[in-house]
Write a protein that binds this DNA or RNA. Structure first.
Lengths: 142, 142
DNA sequence: GCTACTTCCTCAAGCTACTTGAGGAGCAAG
DNA sequence: CTTGCTCCTCAAGTAGCTTGAGGAAGTAGC
C-alpha cells in the first residue's frame, strides 16, 4: 500500500516537484521505488512531508526545519533545542511584525497626504514621490 | 563634478553592484562614462537611486518601483495611479501583518505548551513536534 | 494485444533581487 | 614606477522552489 508521489503530494500539501526537491536536499531520505522506477511512499514519510509543509507554512526556513527534523529524529538532541529554535523564531516574527506595523503607518500617512493635497497632478509633482524620497525606513527583511 | 559609482553608492545607499544591476534592468538609464570607461553620475541620477532605495526599503517590488518611476517620469500617468499603487500595497502590508500576528500567537502557544509539559524529553516526544504537525496556518508570503 | 490517456521520470532552466568572485584595467599618491 | 584602491565585465551563487522538455511507466477500454 505505498503511495505514489502524486498521492503523497495530495496528502501532505507539497507538490510533487517539491517532494523531489526535498529528497534532493536531504529533508527526506530517498524512498523505495517500484519495479518501473517510480517513487513509493509510506505513511510515516507522508507525515514527515506534512510536518515539513506545516513548518514551512509557519515561515521556518528549510534549515530551521532541517534542525527540527534532526531533533525529532532523536540525533543527540532534546526538547530544549526545539524550544530554543522556536524562541529565536518568535523573536524574529515579533520584530518583522513591528516593522510591518510601522511601515503600514508610514504608507497610510503618505496616501493620506496625497489624497489631501494632490488633485490628479502630474506624477512628478505628487506628494508620494516626495514622501518616498524622504522616507527613512529599515529595509523589510524577507 | 560627476560622481563615481562608489560615491553614488555612498550617497544613495545602494551598493555599486546593485547600481549596475539597476542599470542593467532599466531602472536607471545608462549613464555617461569617463574616457577610461568608468560610470559618471549626476546628482539627479543619485536622487533617482535614492528614491529607488527608499522605495525598496519600504518593501515595494522592483516592478512596483518601476511603475512609480514611470509615473514620476510623467509618461502619460498622474497622481491617481501612484495613489492606487500605494493603496494596493498598504492592503498587502496589512494582510501580511495580520498573518504575522496570528503566527506569533500560534508560536507563542507552542513554546508555552512545551515549557509547561516537556522536561527535556527526547526530541520526538516534544509537544512542539506534535504542534507543528497539527498546525493549520496560511503560508506566510514573502 | 493495441491504443489513448494520465502520471511519472530526469535534467535543465527560470523566478526575485541581488551578492560574490574571477581576472583585469584605470587612476592617484609617494 | 610601483603600490593600492576603485572600477570594469562576465559568470555563478543565494533561497526555495516552479516550469518545461522529452521520454517512459502504468491503467482503462476495445
Amino acid at each position: 500500500m505505498p503511495l505514489t508521489i502524486g498521492e503523497a503530494a495530495g496528502k501532505s500539501g507539497c507538490s510533487a516537484p517539491t517532494i523531489r526537491y526535498y529528497e534532493e536536499i536531504g529533508l527526506l531520505r530517498a524512498v523505495d521505488r517500484t519495479l518501473g522506477g517510480r517513487r513509493a511512499y509510506s505513511w510515516p514519510q507522508v507525515y514527515r512531508l506534512t510536518f515539513i509543509r506545516r513548518a514551512r507554512d509557519l515561515g521556518l526556513s528549510v534549515e530551521q526545519v532541517r534542525t527540527l527534523l534532526r531533533i525529532s529524529d532523536g540525533d543527540q538532541a532534546d526538547c530544549g533545542d526545539a524550544q530554543d529554535l522556536l524562541a529565536t523564531y518568535v523573536e524574529e516574527v515579533r520584530r518583522r511584525r513591528a516593522e510591518l506595523e510601522s511601515l503600514e503607518n508610514t504608507l497610510t500617512a503618505m496616501a493620506q497626504r496625497c489624497g489631501d493635497t494632490c488633485a490628479n497632478v502630474p506624477g512628478a509633482a505628487c506628494t508620494v514621490m516626495e514622501d518616498v524620497l524622504n522616507a527613512r525606513v529599515e529595509a523589510i527583511p524577507g
